[in-house]
Structures are given as C-alpha cells and as structure tokens.
Design a protein around this nucleic acid. Structure first.
Lengths: 142, 142
DNA sequence: ATGGGTGCAAAGGATTTGCAACATT
DNA sequence: AATGTTGCAAATCCTTTGCACCCAT
C-alpha cells in the first residue's frame, strides 16, 4: 500500500526502536506534523484519542527518539525545546516575537566537513538556526 | 591604557547596558574565559571574591546580556545552557561524552544570507553547532 | 515466565518572581 | 528624591525517577 511514504513503524524498526503503540502514535504525529512540536504539543494532541497516554511516556519516548536519531531535538533555548520528525539536515528560523520555528530549506547546512576542520572530532549531527523577527511579525508592527 | 582589547565596561555601554559592579564582573569573566561557562560556573568563580553576589543576579544579568546581544547564549539542550563572550559568529562542537563545548574556528558560519533565502525574515543572530564524540574521548575509548 | 514498556505519584533541579533594601544619579 | 539594581526567600515549572502494573514475546 503506502510504499512511497515512510511509515512510523518503518522508521522505528529501521533505527532499532521497538514499535509500541505509544511510540508509533508519537512517531506518526511527528511524521504528519512538521511544526516542531514540544512535548506539551504532542501530549495534548494525542491525549484525547489515547486517554491513558502519560506525559512521562511522551518525555521518555522523545528522549529515546533523539538518542536513536529517529527524530531531531531542537533546542532554541532553555524554554524552547521541541522535536522534528525530519531528520535530513536543514536550517531553522526562530522568531523571537511569535515563537514559531520555521524550516529554511534554501539555506545549506555545512555538514560532514573535512576531518581537519573538525579537529579530528566525530560528528553525529549538526544544528543550524537563525533568530530574529519573522516577516509576519515585522508587518504586524508597522 | 588598554586600547587594543575591548573592556567589559566598553562592551556594556556600547550595547546600552548600565555598567554596575556585578555586570562588569560577569562581563569581564566572559571576556577572559572563552570556555562557555554556565550560570553555575560563573557564580562559583566570582562568588569567593564577591561574597554578596547572588545567583539570581547572575541569572538575570546573563539573560539581559543575551537579550542585548552583549553575550551569546548557547543552548545545546535543556540541560546544557551556557554563555559566550565571543559574539562574532562562529561554530561550536559539543561532545556528548565529556560535555565540553569547543570552538570550531575553521568552519564557516553561513550568515547574513540573501533575503530571498530567508523568506523575508530579519536575522539577529545565527547558531551553528555539531555534536558527537570528541577526539580525546574517542582515543580514551580505544 | 521474562524483559521491556507504561503511567502514576513523587522527587528533583533549574530558573524566575515578589519584594524590601540598597546604590547611583 | 527617584529610578533602577540587587539579593534573599519562596514559588513555579519542567523534567526525571522509583516503582508497581501490564503487555508481548
């Protein structure tokens, strides 16, 4: 059936994560919502349909996902931590006014650089983001 | 006298931050220690010589510094927040084993890009960092 | 039967806030 | 005197942990 789109189940098993009901639900949410949701966002989105789901499980699952690189943890600052199901390196933009995190597909992420430039350190992931005031918030002000 | 090196006092006033004794002490610490200190690091370094300094002030001051772009807040994840007195854009490397944050001077940070690529959003700062296992930790393991 | 996953309640920690005292102008 | 800054204590909030239960193998 769904052969072109990666399913949550496939993503999990491919990374060695046991596909429990809760994990699949959270993974599906991440694969369907590229809105950079927080723990709270995911919890309140899934809770109505899954009343027994606990926030603890959402926390634990997302931590596991980040460790296993099933999802990306985005840490803008101590008050803005969220997750991204898109694990292809890409830049982000954080609007300090409205708090949105926007994908910047046009900006190349310098990755997998020559070892010499990284002074011999191994790289497992890269994060690039810009901060400022987004176009919409700029227009609202004027 | 000290004409070639930027003083803490100069950095603060240039950014419109009132130079109180505490603020100067914290700024001086940041300008002399490019080690990406945390709130705790700065507090315990300054406290002996300044016993009345409170951690609240360190928190408030660093928040103010980040807002006024007197210093850079580096947020690796929710448990690793630190500050950098070097406000020239540069890349960082975070070692997941030892927790160190290393400056990567050889890696160019793509900044101030064409408006089209940033979809019309204003940029006030950029952050680029790599994660992984650093050379020293890699050698220790083998 | 066993190992891992889940969820509740509680603990833990880091950061922020309220407010009075203080310093600086 | 007025404004802004500091520091203590307390509150808050987010995240993790301990542990018992449950599910799937």
């Amino acid at each position: 059936m769904n052969t072109c789109k990666e399913t949550a189940y496939e993503r999990l098993t491919a990374h060695g994560v046991k596909p429990s009901v809760q994990r699949i639900a959270i993974m599906e949410y991440l694969l369907e919502h590229f809105t950079h949701p927080t723990v709270e966002d995911i919890y309140s989105a899934l809770h109505p349909a899954m009343p027994t789901l606990s926030k603890t499980t959402v926390y634990n699952t997302l931590r596991l996902f980040a460790e296993q690189r099933v999802a990306l943890m985005i840490s803008i600052d101590d008050h803005h931590v969220c997750y991204d199901g898109n694990i292809v390196p890409h830049a982000h933009y954080y609007c300090e006014q409205c708090g949105r995190i926007i994908d910047l597909c046009g900006v190349p992420v310098p990755c997998l650089r020559k070892t010499s430039e990284l002074q011999g350190h191994d790289v497992s992931s890269v994060q690039l983001y810009y901060r400022g005031t987004c176009r919409e918030c700029k227009e609202k002000k004027s």
